[in-house]
């Protein structure tokens, strides 16, 4: 039973079924207005932030803050933050944690999902139960903190990865997908003498690219967006991820240490306005989400919903 969401098979050719009343003009206009308002509510703040990050000091002063109408293209704010100061470092740390964390999470999730994909194998039920029980029981903040610190992970980037490395939801999704691989395929491979490792890497994984991609992107977005873990575990500001930097310098309003030396690039203002710098940090934080998003959306229907519904 596949539930398709993005596409619409129910009414091919966008045609109104014969039994449905004609749409009233008032209803159509109202619907249009609601949808337009929703779309604008999402896109307008993004637009204003991007435009302000590319505005010169004069434009920002004239507007009295956020700029909505672009007047020029002044990328100096971006040169400032990528000048090797704290913000470039935070971007690097976040990239590292996201890449490393996603790799760890994917390997562990795929292995465990395959290991749990055969009902009737040794200890299958208790092991599956171990994973699924995490849906109902959460450890509290205090004991988690004590365990992580007692393992010596405090102030280590591993503290941003290991405690959240496995999500039971993602495991269930991948496992459901694996269980859907036709068993004839696996049996014939087994008769030919293939071991489990071979079956996983050569048969099951190539068939599950979509779901692995989506789950990987979910993990990646989670790692990139994580903020509070770094408040708990990372004391040294050199190891702060980008979300922490964004919070400290933009929300809480301290000014970032964008390294002492002013930027000397011909044709670019040496000291760009701070609001532009702030908005440039926001843009840098948004960009990965906006880049991965189309991929998630494309595979989402195929991968996750199908997998979850087939559970």
């Amino acid at each position: 039973m596949t539930t398709v969401i993005a596409s619409r098979p129910r009414r091919p050719g966008n045609r109104r079924p014969a039994w449905e009343e004609k749409a009233t003009p008032v209803g159509q206009v109202l619907k249009g207005l609601v949808l337009l308002a929703l779309v604008l509510a999402v896109l307008f703040p993004l637009w204003a932030v991007v435009v302000t990050s590319l505005a010169s000091r004069q434009t920002i002063d004239a507007a009295g803050g956020m700029v909505v109408v672009p007047r020029e293209f002044d990328p100096s704010a971006y040169f400032t933050i990528f000048n090797g100061g704290q913000i470039s470092r935070a971007v690097w740390i976040s990239t590292l944690v996201t890449a490393g964390g996603t790799a760890v999470s994917l390997v562990l999730t795929v292995l465990a999902a395959y290991g749990l994909s055969r009902p009737g194998s040794v200890a299958h039920r208790p092991l599956l139960f171990l994973f699924l029980l995490t849906f109902l029981i959460y450890p509290g903040l205090v004991p988690s903190y004590l365990v992580v610190t007692s393992l010596g992970l405090k102030d280590s980037l591993w503290s941003l990865i290991l405690p959240t490395a496995i999500s039971a939801f993602n495991l269930v999704v991948v496992r459901a997908f694996f269980m859907n691989v036709p068993s004839e395929l696996l049996d014939s491979a087994r008769i030919d003498g293939a071991g489990e490792w071979y079956i996983l890497t050569r048969i099951v994984l190539p068939l599950s690219k979509a779901v692995v991609a989506v789950v990987g992107l979910f993990y990646a977005v989670g790692y990139w967006n994580a903020y509070f873990n770094s408040v708990l575990y990372i004391d040294t500001s050199d190891k702060w991820p980008i979300q922490r930097v964004l919070q400290t310098y933009i929300l809480a309003g301290q000014s970032p240490s964008v390294t002492g030396a002013p930027v000397n690039i011909p044709g670019v203002t040496a000291y760009p306005p701070t609001l532009a710098v702030k908005m440039a940090v926001v843009v840098v934080t948004v960009v990965p989400a906006v880049i991965v998003y189309p991929f998630v959306q494309r595979h989402f229907t195929k991968g996750v919903i199908t997998g979850a519904v087939k559970g």
Partner: peptide
């Protein structure tokens, strides 16, 4: 081999989920 594949994930859950729960 299936048990071996499940082990790392299960171990991680035990350490970061169930030990704190008991804690």
């Amino acid at each position: 081999p299936l048990l071996l594949m499940t082990a790392p994930g299960a171990l991680l859950l035990i350490v970061f989920h169930y030990v704190p729960t008991l804690g």
